[in-house]
Amino acid sequence: MTTRHPPGSPGSAAVEFLRPRSLSQALAAKAELQDALPIAGGTDVMVEINFGKRRPAALLDLTGVRELRGWQRDGALLRVGSGVTYTRLEAELAGLLPGLAMAARTVGSPQIRNRGTIGGNLGAASPAGDCHPVLLAAGAAVEAGSVRGARLIPADAFFLGPKRSALADDELITAVLVPPAPGPQQFAKVGTRNAMVIAVCSFALELRPGAGVGTGIGSAGPTPLRARDAEDFLAAELAGSGLWESREPLPGAVARRFGELAAAAARPVDDVRGSAAYRRHALSVLARRALGWAWDSYRKEGHLCG
């Protein structure tokens, strides 16, 4: 008995497979075949195909598009190509975007992180996508390219519903534009196993010393969400009490209230991964703890700076 793998698909079930070698080729292909499904690492797309949830007529493989694979400074911003893998986010951006590196660390297994990309995460537009809360908290924008040109979509306008984004049919995600972290960032995610788990809920936080705070909630609503009331409350407390300057310990009541407001911003449901009540509860804990850790970092930085 010999062992072999099945041959290519038969004619009746063929999936067109496009492999552009440049961004302009990729955009042209997407313009021509608008129902082509972009694929990079394949860690989302192939799962959906294998489970029979999607049968795309065409796959647009972006792994050969060099322009998408790097990250660099772009004026005051960082431009992170959509083809940058979680492994690279974790290894190369831990200093500039620590929250994003922390989120990348929680994705899947090392093999998944070697394949999966930030662009793929955004493209799937799952409410549970691990990068999304951080991008919301950091005030990132998604760069959408097409033969018509490029446009920027603010992260908090990108997610329209479960697995639905503001991307037009002829557009590809080409990059994420995000300011380098102006202060401490945190990301925390609850799952019912200690690794390789989809978020039951998650929370991201960015402190912008003297300027405000950003937040992001994952897996507790139809889309990733910002906790705007929590942001406003905390920004006012920090500014009003002179805490940015004094770097005094944060009053416990402030952290608790911040947690409550973060939980109140969620719109969770009961599902196989967790109850709505648990998600709300856990978010209040995650937000409170994340704030504590971020504030501790801010205080230590101040100490180090003098």
Partner: peptide, 9 residues
């Protein structure tokens, strides 16, 4: 508890 998901220190 929570592992690398960073839920508690």
């Amino acid at each position: 508890p929570g592992g690398v998901s960073n839920t508690t220190h």
